[in-house]
Design a protein around this nucleic acid. Sequence first.
RNA 1: GGAGAGGUGGCAGAGUGGUCGAAUGCGCUCGACUUGAAAUCGAGUGUACCGAAAGGUACCGUGGGUUCGAAUCCCACCCUCUCCGCCA
Length: 425
Amino acid sequence: MLDLKQIRKNPQQVQARLNHRGDYDLEPLLKLDQQQRELETARSQLQARSNEIGKLVGQKIKSGADPKGSEVKALKEEGNDIKAQLSQLEPTEKEIKHQIESFLLALPNLPSESTPLGESEEQNVEVRRWGDEYIPQDKAILPHWEIGEKLGILNFERSTKIAQSRFVTLIGAGAALERALIQYMLDRHIQAGYTEVMPPFLVNSASLTGSGQLPKFAEESFKCDRDDLWLSPTAEVPVTNLHRDEILSSTDLPLHYCAYTPCFRREAGSYGRDTRGLIRLHQFNKVEMYKFVRPETSEAEHEALVNDAEAILQGLKLPYRVLELCTGDLGFSANKTYDLEVWLPSSDKYREISSCSNCGDFQARRASIRFKEPGVKGGQFVHTLNGSGLAIGRTMAAVLENYQQPDGSVQVPEVLQRYLGREVI
RNA sequence: GGAGAGGUGGCAGAGUGGUCGAAUGCGCUCGACUUGAAAUCGAGUGUACCGAAAGGUACCGUGGGUUCGAAUCCCACCCUCUCCGCCA
């Protein structure tokens, strides 16, 4: 959520930065804000008098005045009069406040100053590449779903029977490989100082609002309708809300978490895209990294976060590149994002496997997560960062494709061998 | 699902119609004492909004209602805990 005070103070500047992201008009918000403040002034003056009357009546009666006498009666009448006026003002003000709130909740984060300008992914900027030497040279490369089905470790067809399309069942070595990837990633991040958490996979509406998925992206998540619970689309949601409505001590910061969770996404509007394989499923596993940090450290923490995600790909010897997203491609809550794209030889291109975002104080404002310096009055919002480290299904796809052998088998990456207990699948 | 208890400041916990934004304790901050620390003593210590300031307003789970006046009374809802049932 953006800071209303900042918008009020520099409307043109905020508007200009929002324009880089899309079509947003702050005019209605500024009008509502103006109205709200006028109403608030009028209302609080009436309330002040009302409070005064309340006290006066109490005093008079206590000091022996006749509760039914004319003096007290006059005060009560004035009190009733004020109440009548307030009953006009209050609902109007409340309604306007709601409108302001809804408006603010629908505005995306402002891009950071350093984010490249652009309208779509075409304008994303490649920052670096790694692992060219590991790109397979073999021409007869099969897509991962064919490799998986041949080896009998992935089954899509039967999954439609169990659930729908866009689900997969992992079998035998496939299931084991998935587990091995999860554990390898968690172990590596824990080693790097992240604290593992395993949160609830169902989250309530307040949590989704706190991290930025609601109200705008309700269509993206599966909902358990009778319970105000949703299937979490990413661990970012529960982990953000681990500290919702908290005032942390500055000595607790930074907080570095990692979490394995399944992720559930409706993928509404992506019909026809990536219909085969592990790339776009309604349910997938992911290991997520998440940081709560002091504002002045968030940029450095962001760079470190990307490096932590890269470390996994490097460990697995999977070729990848790092992109910085342009303003038009930035996610709703992010002010700056690096995407990691892994090499998928079957389609002869890089595909997103991790997204590492700095959200600044955007989520902290929504979820009310502050920190306080001991001995200093007042608190300030933390900065939050999140990054996939990594999406497991897509990593599996990359491993199957990059490690496939001419005989149809798949070499197990060295770092996974001790988890899997075998060298070849 | 059934029965009961309860939701108050960073935490614990008092408060059942008026000077209650809220006792007390803990914690925290500052000061005194001390070589230093502990202990002790003293002072201070919620959040948000409006305002240049003085100051004002709101907030005791949420939303309504009664009243001149509500943390306190009434209604509805939500949540948490305990016991029973069911269950991995």
